[in-house]
């Protein structure tokens, strides 16, 4: 039989208690149990970055963390970032620069970009490129994403 674990965590500001299969990873829990489908599943082995989300204030791969490990944690998904206004400037810059096409990488890219901006990252293009190099985008060629992050940092400075 499927083995389960009881968890108690905060997701996008809401307290969640659930009994989950031990093997269930965090992103599947968020998507399938909580209906937070904004976090995407691209490879399920930690490489593509589509499932990048925020746990206890830092970016993590949602496919490389068990839901059970998130017990007691504070999780913020793209829906939470948006609803709480935590990523408004980046989202506006992504729109203005068309830093997304199909949108599948976008929630993970946004989480990575936000971590960079919040950590005081500079507008150095190479540094931005290095930082987002764990987020695969097949559509944009990355340049617009770099521009959007640059814009956000420059505007915050002025």
């Amino acid at each position: 039989m499927t083995r389960t674990v009881a968890i108690d965590l905060t997701v996008n500001g809401e307290r969640i208690t659930a009994s989950v299969p031990s093997r269930l990873n965090l992103v599947d829990f968020l998507r399938n149990d909580l209906g937070l489908t904004g976090s995407h599943v691209g490879c399920e082995h930690g490489v593509c970055g589509a499932c990048t989300l925020t746990v206890d204030g830092v970016a993590v791969r949602g496919c490389l963390m068990l839901a059970a490990q998130a017990n007691g944690c504070t999780v913020t998904t793209v829906e939470g970032l948006s609803d709480q206004g935590l990523s408004t400037a980046l989202q506006a810059a992504f729109t203005k620069r068309n830093a997304l096409q199909c949108g599948f990488c976008t929630p993970g890219m946004l989480a990575s970009a936000l971590a960079y901006v919040n950590a005081g990252g500079t507008d150095d293009r190479d540094a931005i490129r290095a930082h987002i190099s764990g987020n695969y985008c097949r559509c944009t060629g990355y340049q617009a994403v770099v521009e959007a992050i640059c814009d956000t940092i420059k505007e915050a400075r002025t």
């Binding site: 970055g49 990048t52 830092v58 993590v60 791969r61 490389l64 989480a111 990575s112 930082h131 987020n135």
Partner: peptide, 12 residues
């Protein structure tokens, strides 16, 4: 450390 995977991996 900067060569080890990426930010989200280094956080865990």
């Amino acid at each position: 450390l900067p060569h080890i995977a990426h930010d989200a991996i280094r956080n865990r």
